[in-house]
Design a protein around this nucleic acid. Structure first.
Lengths: 218, 218, 218, 218
DNA sequence: CATGAATGAGCCTTCATTCAT
DNA sequence: CATGAATGAAGGCTCATTCAT
């Protein structure tokens, strides 16, 4: 039975992995079950056996993405309290860019979120709550530190999204960036430069805004 | 002949309008010609008659979107030279947000761009060159003014994208924003507030960076 | 009314002529009404106006072919009684080959018969009676002369078909001939040689058979 | 596995058989895949599964026809060298007539060739080389024997086609023959008589021509 | 009478799913 | 559990025909 389960899991896993990649590349409708099975090197009928149907496989992919995201979040959550806010924001930005842009890791988890935004298939709230909000809250706290405690929360949140938006742009509008800024690369060096810029831009804004607020208060 | 053309254009136009909406909602492959024809209340064969086939209809939609974009761009291009850069950037941001978020106008033109980014069908460069780059260049010149003339162009361009990214985030990640910032609206008032914030954030950053650069130079 | 009819006939005639060619090239089902109308340079709706529908146009083409065939038959029917049988058979063969193979004349009337044989659409007996039997009887009489009067009619008829078959082969199996006998041409010179051969072969056979019959009778 | 293959082959084979018949009856374009599937009593999608598409099914039919032809050719190829040329030609003619006319066998292989000649779909050279030329060469050698060695090859080849043409006429112009020679049957007896006639006509011609040639040479 | 536009039936193909082994 | 084969429901496209001017 062990053996059996293991071989079962193996097929299931191959299917899941392949599905992540293919769904991320083509979206739900553009993906055919045969595409997935070919990449997984298993029989077409296996999908129905292991997951019921295409839609349930898609859901399973989401669950899988969830779990991965939780693990990845650990990367910068681990830094809690250890560094000053400016360093923390730099780390957040770099880690975030890595997660969504680094060519060395399969980027399917982000692309699949993007697809879901364009063509919601249900099961979207889960993604936000499990994958997105935790990151958001983490960054919001850093921004709060930088802006000072008595800034209204709406302002803090909007500034947080301003930081996130700068990062995500390079993911969402990636083809545009490649056309308009052809010298921009997305290897380690390119991402470092990008993180530098976004951090500088954001810190400049936050500092200036803080001093403006404090000036206004005085 | 007037009558004739009008009725002729009517079917073609109904088809084109319906296609814009449906393609924007579902992307190219997810859309069926029957969907479009049902919405346009015309026969399936009409697509073939007026556009040749589904793909050519899609191209026609792009051309249509392009023309609309040119018109919309006029909104802020008209302001050339009349205002100071700070006002110009405020106008750009507000106009841009309007174009991509205003609930009163059919938002299909942006969604269709987003779809194209996720699942390219070819004919993408045209979009960038005709729809995107002109806006980019317009904003870049404003940013240049704000940063000063002797800032390296890469920095200017990255700052430009930082501004654009903040705006686009509310479009790309719209469902996320609605979940995470539920009090944020996208009516005229909400967009004004958003424009205020993004302008403030960006101007703060640009000013601070400029003074930093000038300090460094002295 | 004259004028009117004339212009009407003109469109009708253009349509008919084009239909002959296109039907002959592609057969009934392979031909689209638009093919015909394009070649005739008239509107699609004209077919329905002038002929009712595609099928009735096809029938009209047959009728037209009929009339042409009657005229063509005159070519060798006019020789009645003037020459000796050997010359007559030579003339028949050459005329027949001309009718079915000569590159200078539109060969549609024969091809359309061939199509009709493969895919009968009705109205076939007419063709045989009006186009084919007259030729057959004409040749049969010549063969009868050559074989002598007391040969049973079945033999005469089979010999007649042996002559016709040799000719028709070059029409029916034309692509095969072009592949297998590439040096064979179908211009005037080639057809003369072909007529010479078929005449020689047939006369040889008929003479030999006649002497065999006469020997047997003695 | 036997069972499996048998049932597998069964569907594929049913499809192939049905396709042979329907293509032969109607030609390529006139045939719908639904016709074929209905006759084969299988699902429409089966064509796609087993053959890819309609065109490839058509090619498979050709391959099948080819194999059949090879087998049939064996009937007279087996006689090589055993008989004198007169007997050989009689056997060739009878076998050929059987192949193209015998009512006891499905006659689709010939009809499909005929269709291909009227409305070529490509893949025609193959047919000639694999199905037709071998027969032609076989008969040509017999005719050569009968005419003598020093007859120019063009004459030999034309005489060969004269023999073939007489046979094929009964196939190509079959409806005509039935109308004009109503007493001619196509059962065993009728075909024997036909073979007798064509053989007699051809041998008469060839003998007479040979003696004419030899007389001329002396 | 002639024309451009519109229609609906039908065709080939693809795909997710199910079946039998 | 895994597999190859089978299925039926769409999907895109073509075509003969009809309509309105």
């Amino acid at each position: 039975m062990d053996e059996k389960n293991r071989s079962t899991d193996s097929t299931r896993q191959k299917l899941l992995t392949a599905a992540c990649e293919v769904f991320a590349e083509n979206g739900f409708k553009n993906t055919t079950v045969r595409d997935i099975c070919n990449r997984a090197e298993v029989n077409v009928a296996a999908i129905n056996y292991h997951f019921g149907n295409k839609e349930k496989l898609y859901e399973a992919v989401w669950e899988y993405a969830n779990n991965l995201a939780v693990k990845n979040r650990g990367n910068f959550l681990g830094l809690d309290g250890t560094t000053d806010p400016e360093k923390k924001i730099r780390i957040f930005v770099k880690t975030f860019l890595d997660n969504i842009l680094n060519q060395d890791r399969p980027e399917w988890d982000f692309r699949i979120v993007a697809h879901e935004m364009m063509e919601p298939t249900g099961a979207f709230n889960t993604i936000i709550e499990k994958m997105i909000r935790p990151s958001f809250l983490f960054l919001r706290d850093i921004v709060q530190e930088l802006l000072g405690e008595d800034v209204p929360s709406e302002k803090v949140e909007k500034c947080t999204l301003s930081v996130v938006g700068q990062c995500l742009y390079y993911r969402f509008a990636n083809p545009v960036v490649r056309q308009i800024l052809p010298e921009q690369t997305f290897d380690e060096k390119g991402l470092e430069e990008l993180a530098d810029h976004i951090t500088e831009f954001s810190l400049s804004a936050l500092k200036q805004m803080r001093s403006g607020i404090e000036d206004g208060r005085e």
